[in-house]
Amino acid sequence: MLSNVRTLWLTFLHLFHRSETVGYPETKPYMAPRYRARIILSRDPDGAERCVSCNLCAAVCPVDCISLQKTEDQGRWYPEYFRINFSRCIFCGLCEEACPTYAIQLTPDYEMSEYERPNLVYEKEDLLISGTGKYPDYNFYRVAGMAVPGKDKGEAEREDPPVDIHGLLP
């Protein structure tokens, strides 16, 4: 009996509390930067695509909703297509963890609802943004050994110039 009265009293008091509900979409809640929603593909600080089409995101995806095909231009690897089926995605973030180049990132943008399922299939042009996302400085090819346009052999971080194989010194 007493507890019932107490419950009614507490409920009554809530009439005078500040409301937690916001008037979405006019008011938008704050989402932490690490929130896991819409997936994007970012670019490196030089403005080139970060994704090197290594397939690790696709391999780690528990719902198999990422598919891509490697292609190459002057030594640089790119995805020919990069497709995420968001109608399957569970936003677990494993793709972001697996990505060796910080290309694939989850963002706090959760506004992805669609009326048609096919509209949830995102291609590379839908995924690629023009910035670096959460990791402003990283450039994979600056630490990898491959020669790419604008960075020859021996020009990456902590690299010696290429060996002269006709030299006699060890």
Binding site: C61, D64, I84, N85, R88, V121
Partner: peptide, 9 residues
């Protein structure tokens, strides 16, 4: 990998 995306287009 990619079973649910490869032909999603």
């Amino acid at each position: 990998s990619g079973r649910t995306a490869i032909h999603a287009n």
